[in-house]
Design a protein around this nucleic acid. Structure first.
Lengths: 133, 133
DNA sequence: CTTGACTCCGTACTATGGTACGGGACCTAT
DNA sequence: ATAGGTCCCGTACCATAGTACGGAGTCAAG
């Protein structure tokens, strides 16, 4: 049940240094300040593991660590409007980004196709992107 | 026909400093080395403008500036296999990224919905992402 | 022929998200 | 009880993609 930092890290697919970085950023709590003075080895439970996985998911969703910090704070507060707003804002950004990536994919497909077509000579890489940006 | 650096930059929606940065990186040529010694004010034509727009498009497609440099070099070489390979690799990465973003969008929609549902108390932000990463 | 906008150039600084390093403490198996 | 593997801690460093700054040169208009 109680994990070491390296087990915690491995469980989320990140490095130990990354976990420690998140602690420094205040995204993960450092489970120990109340202990009797001396600095000893930390132990982590499923809560920390979930929190860490959440951080990675939220990162995949495009939130910055800064925003993730806010989300984590919201998770235990009652500010629903703020949480909804953040979600909506990010969804809009995601939709935009997804369309951009789709457009980019189109251009690349075009590039690959045109490049496969001719027999020799350079393929028109720059031209393949014309009228896209 | 001949533009100043700031016109070139504006035309691509970037800053002058960014153009100069790309020149330093070797992505845009510096139109002048062969001129008679003295360093004077550069003038840019439609070629440079297209090249700059390409850089932005390729960035949207997720290529790094390093990779864009390679693409630009490929554009005037005959290495079609390499160009196709880069395109295919990037398309695969884009497809992955698009799915990830879609999944993230799902989670966020869930978060927004659950957060809108209850009347008070915190909304389960972390829980909304469970089973996503 | 000066003023103000723009340019050039080099260097330094920024933000983001880590990654590495070195020394000491600690824990476990032999 | 000692060797090897972890852990803790602070500090430093890294890559990417710019952005800012200061001083000097240049250019067009009034």
């Amino acid at each position: 049940m109680a994990m070491s930092i390296s087990e915690l890290a491995r469980g989320a697919g990140v490095g130990v240094e990354t976990v420690r970085y998140y602690q420094r950023r205040g995204l993960l709590e450092d489970p120990r300040p109340q202990k009797t003075g001396a600095g000893g080895i930390r132990h982590y439970g499923p809560d920390e593991a979930r929190r860490l996985r959440f951080i990675r998911s939220a990162q995949d969703a495009g939130f910055t660590l800064e925003e993730i910090g806010e989300l984590l704070r919201l998770d235990s507060s009652d500010d629903r409007p703020r949480a909804r707003e953040m979600a909506r804002t990010r969804i809009a950004a995601l939709d935009q980004q997804i369309s951009r990536l789709r457009a980019a994919r189109q251009s690349l497909a075009k590039l690959a196709k045109e490049c496969a077509g001719g027999v020799d000579g350079p393929c028109p890489i720059i031209a393949s992107f014309e009228g896209v940006g």
